[in-house]
Design a protein around this nucleic acid. Structure first.
Length: 424
RNA sequence: GGAGAAAUGGCAGAGUGGUCGAAUGCGGCGGUCUUGAAAACCGUUGUUCGGGCGACCGGACCGGGGGUUCGAAUCCCUCUUUCUCCGCCA
């Protein structure tokens, strides 16, 4: 979330930037500032009362020590009134604080000033494209039919075991999944990311830290008996490793990568985009997560984009890079690049990665700070993450784009992992 | 799952009702000494909120939450976590 200081000091700027996301913040911000003023007044008088109380208690202690019990008892009687005042002020202060917090949480992250406004995906900025484009032709078979033809993915079996959106990968396709995971992790390690393996369930604090809670509560699977959430992305546990952490400047760069399955309820998304591997409740993904000093975060974002680009290039997939417009960006992001690969038989661009800079929005929730060398004050760090990459749509594109009459060709870069170069 | 013990500053570890934000040691930082380093010695060393241009002043924080008390790291309740023993177990 945004900090109260950001809002207090740059009110108009914040309102202006949030308009880019089609969010009218003016009335919320007015309320916040009003509560903030009240809150600080209460804080001050509360502090004064407590100081008075401390002094009195200290005096009483001294009197008892000096054997002046009657004077001490007299002083004691006066404390009741101060105590009551403290109780009342404290109540009011707590209320102001929680009211303020409740309002702050409603504000999305401010987009980077260079973000174009826009209403929907149609207004996104096209950055560049690459790879060899494939012209779709009617003889191409969509991946769900290829999956059946070569016995690669059993959606019905997943239905039986769990429900829709939980496919069973079989034989060479199971191996292909494993190969992609290994390939992505090896590439990330090579690029300087530190591999970690993290819990697939997180607590409420973690969900709040990265911004899934409270607003996206309904999108996560919730194990209510233990109040734990199945992670929708490795971003949640990997970023939360740094919750309540104060980094030293020498700790940078902080770069982690993790493979995890991801679980998403996808509540409310029915319809045509859910066919085959296009949208699942459980899928595999390798994520890259960085923590940066504010002045380096946009350079880091560009590096991450280049890195993800190198992956789709090695996989020999036609791709395009898009920068999301204000209207299409997530609540928590300040700038997001999406990667889409072309899946020929569907004649469709499929989103396979989303790379974002959250600036200090998550860091403020996480209390993730760093201490610049030689300075006394801590500052909020910047957090970034990106998919590198999400598997199902990559698999869909590989199956569809690399199909031949006799089978499916495995991309060169994966052969050393799969130990086969053809599925038939 | 059952029984017991514990949780204090970056770490180790004192502190069982009254200047305790907290002894001491280690570590870190600065300095003296040294050609340089080590050793030794001296100094310094948490987070956070509010007020002030500022020197600075005040509040909060000893696992989390609540309570008793004029006053709590210290007493009580509760939750969480860790350790030891027993049981179960990939």
């Amino acid at each position: 979330m945004l900090t109260i200081n950001q809002i207090r000091e740059n009110k108009d700027e914040v309102i202006r930037l949030l308009k880019i996301k089609n969010f009218d913040a003016s009335s919320i911000i007015e309320q916040i500032l009003q509560i903030d003023l009240e809150r600080r007044n209460l804080r001050q008088s509360l502090d004064n009362l407590q100081a008075e109380m401390n002094k009195t208690s200290e005096m009483i202690g001294k009197l008892f020590k000096e054997g002046k019990a009657s004077e001490a008892n007299l002083a004691k009687e006066k404390t009741g009134q101060i105590k009551e005042e403290i109780r009342l002020k404290n109540e009011a202060f707590s209320k102001a604080e929680s009211d303020q917090h409740a309002l702050l949480v409603l504000l999305p992250n401010t987009p980077n000033p260079s973000i174009v406004p826009g209403k929907s995906a149609a207004d996104n900025e096209h950055i560049r494209e690459g790879g060899k484009m494939i012209t779709p032709n009617p003889s191409m078979i969509p991946h769900w039919d290829l999956a059946k033809k070569y016995d690669l993915i059993d959606f019905e079996l997943g239905n039986k075991l769990t429900g829709s959106g939980f496919p069973v990968y079989k034989g060479k396709c199971a191996v292909l999944q494993r190969a992609l995971i290994s390939f992505f992790l090896d590439e990330a390690t090579e690029a300087g990311y530190n591999e970690v393996m993290v819990p697939l369930m997180v607590n409420e604090d973690s969900g709040f830290g990265t911004g899934q809670l409270p607003d996206k509560e309904g999108q996560m699977y919730h194990a209510t008996a233990d109040n734990l959430y199945l992670i929708p992305t490795a971003e949640v546990p990997v970023t939360n490793m740094y919750r309540d952490v104060i980094l030293n400047e020498s700790d940078f760069p902080v770069r982690n990568t993790a493979y995890t399955p991801c679980f998403r309820r996808e509540a409310g998304s029915y319809g045509k985009d859910v066919r085959g591997l296009n949208r699942l409740h459980q899928f595999d993904k390798v994520e890259i997560v960085r923590i940066e000093k504010p002045e380096n975060s946009y350079q880091a974002l560009e590096e991450m984009v280049s890195y993800v680009e190198s992956l789709v290039q090695k996989l020999e997939l036609p791709y395009r890079i898009i920068r999301l417009c204000g209207g299409d960006m997530s609540f928590t992001s300040a700038m997001t690049y999406d990667f889409e690969v072309f899946s020929a038989a569907q004649d469709k661009w499929l989103e396979v990665s989303s790379v974002s800079n959250f600036e200090s929005y998550q860091a403020n929730r996480l209390m993730l700070r760093y201490k610049p060398t030689g300075e006394k004050k801590t500052r909020l760090a910047h957090t970034l993450n990106g998919s590198a990459l999400a598997l199902p749509r990559i698999v869909a594109a590989i199956l569809e784009n690399n199909q031949t009459e006799n089978g499916i060709k495995i991309p060169e870069c994966l052969v050393k992992y799969t130990k086969f170069d053809f599925i038939n």
